[in-house]
Write a protein that binds this DNA or RNA. Structure first.
Lengths: 217, 217
DNA sequence: AATCCATTGTAACAATTGTTACCCGTTCAA
DNA sequence: TTGAACGGGTAACAATTGTTACAATGGATT
């Protein structure tokens, strides 16, 4: 936990030095708020009004979509160096979140007041690049999600989910119940159990209680 | 067809006067190329390198995604006042198109060289707003597409497709074969025929040869 | 008129996914 | 120690979607 602004500048530099100008990093440290968040923390809900844009320093965040009946779907994970473009959306146009964000792995973030975003756009070229780059990454991530939904069958989606999760959490062991996975993929627990069993038989994973080991990538 | 730059300025003003500064519109008219494109024209293919960003004045464009096997999926339609954010993606980072664009309804567009985009970002506030607004619209459109894929059944997707298409083409009559619809929804012709019959029985549409009439919205 | 071809309708069947029900084993609290 | 709650396995069945096959229709062409 950075003790003061100086320390925060150093902390941000660790992850953003090569992306953002020094002057901008100082501004971020001055007007941003550093936070440490625990796994499982619900950072944002659908309909919440968005006042801050998060910069992710460490850890991982999962971004979910929900329909009217409350059914969920995992959109993508945010990792170190990412920011949430769906949040940036809120600086122009609507100010309500259209997604849910849950900490997937203990995270350190810096919250930036959204009015700064526009201010820095005119002022810092590196900020413009960063913001655009973020939008692009997000658009491509959404494309990927669409491809997955449209072109893959459930067993492929499941396997992709497991390997993807292993990557963002930097661990081949996934600590989830079948029910939780079912929520993320928007299917039922029985279907997940069935397909996990198949994946185990084909030697790609190993099943334990509350735990799945990914063997192949 | 505008005869000269003066006429093009007027033409662009018709659609963008309230969005973009006058000075910017003049610049667009100077460095942009006006084009008229016919329905069915394949404007861009996956893998094409992107050198221009299109501003849509009239008509409609459909944006498709394709997987390795050549299976297609409709992502969304672009309409008057829209631009293609997936194209803007190409100004930073990769320069290859990740989508296919086909004229859905005779269109008039202005092609802007992509290097102008960055130049104008620093120079015109209205351009920044426009570009951000476009990104946001596109992100939300992609979210909508994801919702549709994840939460709707095929009959609902089909009905949504028909009504959506009626809106962008500004006509309740849809001139498509069942096979063409099947491609857009990434399913088979037989499935489309079956579900269309159901929709007809429920009184939402009326079927003809090469033609579908949307009765309810 | 005869023929061809694209389009649509439909039946029969297969594969995938979703649902219900019930099992067993583990964990945890009373 | 007992029982409830949770996590997971599995069978049986239902619903949805995909596939194959073939018939019927209507235009277009010769």
């Amino acid at each position: 936990m950075p003790e003061n602004t100086e320390a925060l500048v150093e902390k941000i530099k660790e992850y953003y030095e090569f992306l953002l100008e020094d002057g901008l990093i100082v501004e971020i440290a001055n007007s941003g708020v550093f936070k440490q968040l625990k796994e499982g923390h619900r950072m944002m809900e659908i309909g919440d009004s968005v006042k801050y844009m998060p910069l992710l320093l460490t850890g991982a965040i999962k971004i979910l979509r929900e329909d009217e009946e409350g059914d969920e779907l995992l959109l993508y994970f945010l990792e170190k160096g990412d920011t949430c473009a769906m949040t940036m959306t809120c600086c122009y146009g609507e100010s309500k979140s259209r997604i849910r964000a849950i900490i997937e792995k203990d995270a350190e973030i810096v919250l930036i007041p959204i009015h700064k975003m526009e201010e820095w756009l005119a002022k810092y070229k590196s900020w413009r690049s960063f913001v655009f780059e973020s939008y692009n990454i997000r658009l491509n991530e959404m494309l990927e999600t669409i491809d997955t939904l449209a072109f893959l069958k459930m067993d492929e989606r499941l396997y992709k989910y497991l390997t993807g999760k292993a990557v963002v959490t930097q661990s081949t062991t996934i600590s989830n119940t079948h029910q939780e996975i079912a929520y993320d993929l928007h299917t039922s627990r029985v279907v997940v159990s069935r397909l996990l069993k198949q994946l185990e038989h084909s030697g790609k994973i190993k099943l334990y209680r509350n735990k799945i080991e990914v063997l192949k990538f």
